[in-house]
């Protein structure tokens, strides 16, 4: 599944203009605890979280996530948004909650990251 297909499936809004949308998503994981995400990291993963701060982008880049989708998102932290735009990182916002987003992507064939 590409980022463009993920957008079509979930209706998520791209917050960083110009990011290539043909990038492949390898798997998905939903969690708000950063160490849990790093324990389940997989290159090209989509990470669904409600956490909106700088450290999310730092972790996502370190683990080479394809994108971060902010669930239940009404407002994005300005420092986080700036960091994502500076780095050209694929940050998305969705009105859907994490459970619904995961369900939509699962129904479209995306599976969770592998357990270590």
């Amino acid at each position: 599944m590409t980022l463009a297909q993920m957008m079509e499936i979930t209706g998520a809004e791209l917050l960083v203009p110009g990011v290539p949308l043909d990038k492949e998503i390898s798997a998905g994981y939903s969690c708000d605890l950063l160490s849990w995400v790093m324990g389940r990291e997989q290159p090209g993963m989509a990470w669904i979280t409600v956490q909106t701060h700088l450290n999310v982008i730092a972790v996502a880049e370190l683990i080479e996530a394809a994108c971060v989708i902010l669930a239940d998102c009404s407002q994005v932290d300005s420092a986080m948004l700036q960091r994502a735009r500076d780095d050209g990182f694929a940050l998305f916002a969705s009105k859907h909650d994490a459970f619904t987003l995961g369900g939509m992507l699962y129904a479209a064939g995306l599976r969770t990251t592998e357990r270590p």
């Binding site: 708000d32 950063l34 160490s35 324990g39 956490q51």
Partner: peptide
């Protein structure tokens, strides 16, 4: 509150 402190840091390092 920032999502740290899951108690997985040292185990993640060791793994």
């Amino acid at each position: 509150s920032l999502g740290f402190g899951a108690g997985m840091g040292l185990p993640n390092m060791k793994r």
